[in-house]
Design a binder for these strands. Sequence first.
RNA 1: GCGGGUUUCGUCAAGCGGUUAAGACCUCGGAUGGUGGUUCCGAUAUGCAUGGGUUCGAAUCCCAUAACCCGCCCCA
Length: 416
Amino acid sequence: MANIIHVQKGTKDILPQEISQWHRLEQNALEIFTKYGYKEIRTPIFEATELFARGVGDTTDIVNKEMYTFEKSERSLTLRPENTAGVVRSFIENGMSRLSAPVKLWYKGPMFRYERPQAGRQRQFHQVGIEMFGIKEPTADAEAVMLAVDYLNSLGLNDLEVEINSLGCPKCREEYKRKIKEVLKPEFDNLCEDCQTRYEKNPLRLLDCKVETCKAIFEKPEIQKVIKSDFLCEECAQHYKDFKKYLEKLNIKYVENKLLVRGLDYYNRTVFEIKSNNLGSQNAVCGGGRYDSLVGQLGGEDTPAIGWAMGMERLNSLLEKPEAEKLDGYIVSNSSEDAFELAQELRNKGLKVEFDLANKKFTKQLEKAAKVAKFALILGEDEIRTNTVSVKNLSTSEQIKVPRCDIIKRIGEKNG
RNA sequence: GCGGGUUUCGUCAAGCGGUUAAGACCUCGGAUGGUGGUUCCGAUAUGCAUGGGUUCGAAUCCCAUAACCCGCCCCA
């Protein structure tokens, strides 16, 4: 036998026995997002590499070491590592800033990041997410979070923690960064290697380092004082305050986390994550925030925006595994012709029905029926002659011979 | 990129230097039988991730490689 070819590291087949959970995730998304006025958008799976370099940010890990990039016809292309940049590209390119605000878009689909796989992390994974354009008011932030919570609740997920923070605007954040760098400067040589790079690239990321020596440094009172300081400018502070006010009004329990920064460069002001304790170390199911300057940065008119994404594999691992769904009926008959005809008749009426394509023995067919269906539809010589079918309920063993036209009624009442 | 762990049939697994490599489930076939899920019988790894080594003898010990899993970083 030839060697078999395996799925690639960090990728998975989604098998028939788990597909119903995926359908549920997708159906609930469509239903609930639609209630909030969102429309689905589908953008390509690869884009110009430059889109992500400019959109996601060239200091981020995602862009620096996690992208699947390839050359074709002298173009540099990249499999999308996330979908905000793509949606923004489409928003700009299709002139959606001319539409009446807010423009509300949602998406679902595969994303690609070249990382070491572990629990809750794959190289190809799926996200469902939303983006809202054109509203700078904190009502938009609150509605976006509300929508996330609503969606999660619809899936039966209630035991989740919403964490929020505000990163301020470029102006007040720069000031904050400057202060952090200043107070940490004397300690620079004592920081771990990672923190030394973060010091240059993204000082906000420094603060939740897990290395003991770094933690000890950050514990120092003069440093804590800077970290804890309220750096938001007046406008940002008001925005954040109003955002929280709306969350409270909506009864959304949240926790403020000053260390919540998020790894994508485009965020400003509101950022949030929704976490579950049942996920192992990759515990965020949802992450998002406001990105008011991204549209402008990518060449569109300045447009405030906010969005979030959820990891569908992570959602899936939190959901109850559903029972395999059975057929309504399995036709047991030694006449393939008659079985075929009956199957089509019932399928056209909307029932899920199969019969034995291999025309095995009666017992085998019944055995199969018990395995895959709720009802056995027995079509023997007698039944064919009298235009009836013996309908056997396979869980109660009740069996009744009925006219063909009454099958649905019989299955229906025993089914409900 | 850096750590730790695991790897025996489709699946779960026994095995601890000498076995014909248990067992269970699934699948398939047969018996009985116009009626399954709840009977009985049978089939299914010359093979223990791969390549070397030690040994009279290796799934069992050693080395290397790979794959997978888990964690760090980061993220959904």
